[in-house]
Amino acid sequence: MSNSVKPKALFAGKVYGQCTFWIGVVGLAIGLIGMILSFAGVNPYFDNQALLDGLWAGHRAPTIWAEATGREFQPGHWYLSRLGFSDGIAMLGIAIACLAAVIGIWVATLGMVMKKREPGFFVVLGFILALLLTLSVTGILSG
């Protein structure tokens, strides 16, 4: 290859970049909308003043949950069953942003499989990484 001919960027990288950018932006936008609704008083799940009081007092997360929601924290994807609350929507947005890289690596790996241009070694690496991230999201790796 000549030194003056621009090499093409690898397909897997381009796909990963597009996925993470757009899913991340959508997640962050939903998070902002949820917070605006929360401050507008549209069915908030947390008592924001109690939450702030707990943060200010240096309380641990489970204590703050109990003070700000009146319920004990249940580990896991709590927001999925509380999407009718503005804070549930805000947390859904955060979760979508946190899923961007997981979806991105799955799509990039499937892209590598379909295009058949990348050495199999990187397909296997992509698959292991995608699996690792999925296990983390589902809580199987989260203890």
Binding site: G31, L32, M35, F46, L55, S142
Partner: peptide, 24 residues
């Protein structure tokens, strides 16, 4: 972006994420 995604989920599922802090 990959490593921190995997690391942030145990914290989220452990109750450490509050939208009031994270979003702003």
């Amino acid at each position: 972006s990959l490593g921190d995604t995997a690391a942030v989920w145990p914290y989220i599922l452990g109750g450490g994420m509050f939208p009031l802090v994270a979003v702003p």
